[in-house]
Nucleic acid binder design. Structure first.
Length: 477
RNA sequence: GGCGCCGUGGCCAAGUGGUAAGGCAGAGGACUGCAAAUCCUUUAUCCCCGGUUCGAAUCCGGGCGGCGCCUCCA
């Protein structure tokens, strides 16, 4: 009964062991806020959220940090193209990103450090690396990390760097590097950098930090020198995270990260999502097309984070239906007839079974697909049990409701679905009025009128359910 | 070229040695004025070939097919 996580560094399923018992420090590489986030980004960010929620659900005292990159090549180019500054360009996109996160149910994390707020610590960090012989200043005003000074470089990705650059990818004369493999910690400012406000004073002159450095410095500043978990997309393994290890361990002499976890990139309609294929899907678009955010969330967590995930609109339809089943189940359970004198039911047993299966699934390297299966088995089991009975004990109902809501603390599906379906009082009053009219028509066996009313409501995504206790209504997506 | 991953029913997707979770879709039935919701029934020799084993979707070898990284893409 312990959490096992696949560790990219060891390439094996390791037992999660934080530095300090009961506490967990997590650093996740967040987005570069120069544009709208796409659906692939959110597979990763939703996984971060799953980790965040599950660690808390498991009782850890979690400190979770996700950076927002607000200065790098892409940001600078985008800001310059928009004839603005990097801060004016990234500000709104940062807000939009956080807004998308809220919509999809990504819980706020403890800190969202932005690189531009850490320039001082970054300069200090570079000086430490220089002092320890891991970095050197070049004549062009840049400071480079010396790969030769860090023998284990390449271990995370499992590559031998001595042959890595044997190919002719690197323009040897581009910078004043001592070794083609070396990477920049500090880059001298260009005219464009100055124009968009991406240049700061430093002991090496005007310039800006290298992208890899940002994460090493912010994670250390916010969480300490050794992190329990570091998360990111699979593309970041090399060189980004490899470089972070070299920088951080080079500067501190201590292990940087205990567990490295990486999320696999998703596919869209069976193909890699890429600009050249023109199949980028932004979260914004899906929301504007009217897709339920809970369905998006469901689809993105419906497969294991290290496995393939093929994102399709057909799949989104399926997820929409799955989420609706969950909502209907909660509504039914909450409204079930209770009777303290009723005989004991299967619900407490099913609830216990579901919680246990859910935990086993999530402990197995955050297997959300298996965890969802546990939830749906529970749904079927309880529905069948309720069909066999007229009433259940209040405590039995509560045990089932508690289990459902507890599991949703991690999955966040009901939570997001409810938020997306909130109705104002005016609409509710109108619907109630229509339902009364329909009830009167039905009493007169005037089914034509009754059906017309039902269709009028359906046109506004209101679906009716006639039961023994009267008519219930719900908003569907 | 180097390193690595994947191929499970119509679609999506768990399962890494004991004879196939779950969701969606479909078909039949129960319930309903009709629906909706729900329940019941129903749909897989796990890409192919060989091997190891009492036993393999799961391990090994080969093949076919798809893909990723080695480029500051989550």
């Amino acid at each position: 009964m312990s959490l096992k996580v696949y560790n990219t560094a060891t390439r094996s399923l390791d037992t999660f062991e934080p530095l300090e018992n009961g506490r967990a420090t997590v650093y996740a590489c967040g987005p570069t806020i120069y544009n709208h986030a796409h659906i692939g980004n959110f597979r990763t960010f939703l996984f971060f959220d799953l980790v965040h929620r599950y660690l808390e659900w498991s009782g850890y005292d979690v400190r979770f940090v996700m950076n927002l990159t607000d200065v790098d090549d892409k940001v600078i180019e985008a800001a310059d193209a928009a004839r603005t500054s990097i801060s004016d360009h990234t500000g709104p996109f940062g807000e939009i990103f956080l807004d998308d996160c809220r919509t999809l149910g990504v819980r706020p994390v403890d800190r969202y450090p932005r690189a531009t707020h850490y320039i001082g610590p970054m300069v200090d960090f570079i000086e430490r690396l220089v002092a320890r012989g891991h970095a050197y200043a070049a004549d062009d005003g840049a400071v480079y990390f010396s790969i030769a000074s860090f023998p284990t470089y390449g271990r995370l990705k499992g590559i031998d760097t001595s042959t890595l650059m044997a190919g002719a990818r690197v323009e040897q004369d581009e910078y004043e590097k001592e070794d083609a493999r070396d990477f920049a910690l500090w880059k001298p400012a260009t005219e464009m950098d100055e124009r968009v406000g991406a240049a700061w004073d430093s002991p090496w002159g005007r310039g800006r930090p290298g992208w890899h450095l940002e994460c090493s410095v912010m994670s250390t500043a916010e969480l300490g020198e050794t992190l329990d978990m570091h998360l990111g997309g699979e593309d970041l393994i090399f060189p980004h995270h490899e470089n972070e290890i070299a920088q951080s361990e080079g500067a501190t002499g201590k292990p940087f990260v205990r567990h490295w976890m990486h999320v696999k990139h998703l596919f869209v309609e069976g193909r890699k999502m890429s600009k050249s294929l023109g199949n980028f899907i932004r979260v914004r678009e899906l929301l504007e097309e009217g897709y339920d955010p809970a369905a998006i969330r469901h689809l993105l967590i419906s497969s294991h984070y290290r496995g393939d995930l093929n994102f399709t609109r057909a799949g989104l339809e399926g997820s929409r239906a799955a989420v609706q089943r969950l909502l209907d189940f909660e509504t039914r359970l909450a409204g079930v007839t209770v009777d303290a004198m009723a005989e004991a039911s299967e619900l407490p047993g099913l609830a216990e079974e579901a919680r246990a299966a859910f935990r086993v699934a999530m402990d197995a390297d955050f297997n959300s697909a298996d965890a969802l299966a546990a939830v749906f088995r529970f749904v079927s089991g309880v529905n069948a049990a309720l069909d066999r009975r007229d009433a259940v004990r209040p405590a039995d109902r509560d045990s089932a409701l508690d289990a459902l809501r507890s599991m949703d603390q991690v999955l966040g599906l009901l939570e997001v679905a409810r938020a997306a379906r909130s109705v104002d009082d005016d609409l509710a009053a109108w619907v109630e009025q229509k339902i009364e009219e329909r009830a009167a028509a039905r009493a007169d066996r005037d089914f034509a009128t009754a059906d017309a009313i039902r269709q009028e409501l359906a046109a506004r995504n209101i679906v009716l359910e006639d039961g023994s206790g009267g008519t219930r209504w719900k908003v569907v997506s």
